[in-house]
Write a protein that binds this DNA or RNA. Structure first.
Lengths: 246, 246
DNA sequence: TCCGCAAGTTGAACACGTTCAAATCGGAGA
DNA sequence: TCTCCGATTTGAACGTGTTCAACTTGCGGA
């Protein structure tokens, strides 16, 4: 942690100290960096991705265009800051839910709902975001190494949810359920982004229907008749997403 | 079908006669159009999406940049021509498979494998393509109105597969299976695009494991114990993708 | 106090996708 | 044959993301 010796090919010089332990950094550079991030987030939220130009972001932050590129390798990199911001808010909202004593399904629904709520004001922006996140090499891709931390953070939410649930289920399924839920959430996000119903109410309806179904499936997994279904499903998951991989 | 009275806000003038019945058109405009498409497809395949500039495409086709924009509203539109080209090839390869008398699973595997084979030479390009296709408004999006025809074409493949299969299954599932298979294929494509194993062999392994599992699930659907699982699953599908919608 | 140097900053310049007013083409009708 | 007019074509120009050589800042050590 905090190691300096790594080759970060595509990243900007200032990204060195990224990830952790930047909270306490009050150096000039860090202030500039945060000013750029703040402007970017605000303008993205106000005008969307395309309409927000790098020149506008720089001007709003009171720096030159070139300076923004000293801290961020590309406009896309600023998008991931926006993403992190919302991720943090989702985490904050989810915290009390995990502590509550309600059922597995109720808490899962609440978690997914809060996710939708956090993103709701940025539905249009999310459409562009997903286009960036979907391309394999992108650091914003949910499968990329760069976002492994965010991925672990997200799965850790589901991990805590699963660990604190009393529901009986196949133990092997239990071990893998957090990842499965993360995948399901990913699918939900894709669905939500394409949901053009007012207020994305169809997505909310899908959540209300899908979670009890999931709960039912999870509960069924410990029954003998469902063993082959469960086992084979987990074998498939192992091929799709080996336990070893991040 | 073939109606002329529609308001095609964003499309180019020449796109009017798109879709059907352009095969016989040998007018000057059509020749130019095809020259541009041919150059675009070739250059995309050779150098990828980003590195292929509109100027290069135009030069290669022997026309001016502006002329390319007379036929295509944007660079992205040329991507969908590339997509159509591969779609056509996949269809051609799939045709003999549908006619063969092998089992449901074997034919499904063959269909999916051929899809991978057709795209294999363009794995890198597909990474960019998916980024374009993932954004909601895009005409290349698999969920868009613009690609409803391609979508129906694709589901029709699975429709024929399902219709010609003897396997016993829940009748309601049978009615919806083509759409489910299409969704599964979509997921497979996303997986394949992100598969960095050499030759995307992991994706092939997943297909080999997933198809028998699917076959097993489909077969199980007619058993009494699996009825609630099937029924509730189909209810969920109805919420996700109403029968009425395209 | 001053020097050296790394960190930070600048804005002009570049390449690209896209637009558009103007030029050209070619066939239908006189 | 000539004229007209819509279809087609042109290339300069615009706005954008990105790069880069040069400049400025401020701090640690002589």
């Amino acid at each position: 942690m905090g190691s300096v010796t790594h080759t970060d090919n595509g990243s900007s010089p200032a990204a060195e100290q990224a990830a952790r332990g930047r909270a306490a950094d009050t150096s000039r550079g860090e202030q500039t960096r945060q000013a750029i991030v703040a402007s970017a987030i605000r303008l993205f939220g106000e005008a969307g991705y395309e309409k927000t130009t790098m020149r506008a972001i720089a001007a709003d932050a009171g720096v030159s265009v070139g300076n923004a590129y000293y801290y961020f390798p590309a406009k896309e990199a600023l998008v991931s800051e926006f993403y992190l911001e919302l991720q943090r808010e989702h985490l904050a909202r989810v915290e009390p839910i995990l502590g509550s004593g309600t059922s597995f399904g109720d808490r899962l629904t609440a978690i997914l709902r809060e996710g939708i709520e956090v993103w709701a004001p940025h539905h249009a922006f999310a459409g562009r975001f997903i286009g960036i996140a979907a391309v394999p090499g992108s650091p914003v891709s949910p499968f990329s190494d760069a976002s492994s931390e965010a991925r672990e953070l997200a799965t850790s939410i589901f991990h805590r949810l699963v660990d604190s649930t009393e529901t009986k289920m196949d133990p092997q399924l239990r071990a893998r359920l957090p990842q499965l839920l993360w995948l399901a959430q990913l699918g939900l996000v894709v669905y939500w982004v394409h949901d053009t119903t007012p207020g994305q109410r169809r997505t909310r309806a899908v959540v209300d229907l899908a979670v009890p179904y999931l709960e039912y499936l999870v509960g069924a997994s410990r029954m003998k008749i469902f063993k082959p279904l469960t086992t084979r499903g987990l074998t498939l998951l192992e091929a799709v997403w080996p336990r070893a991989a991040g």
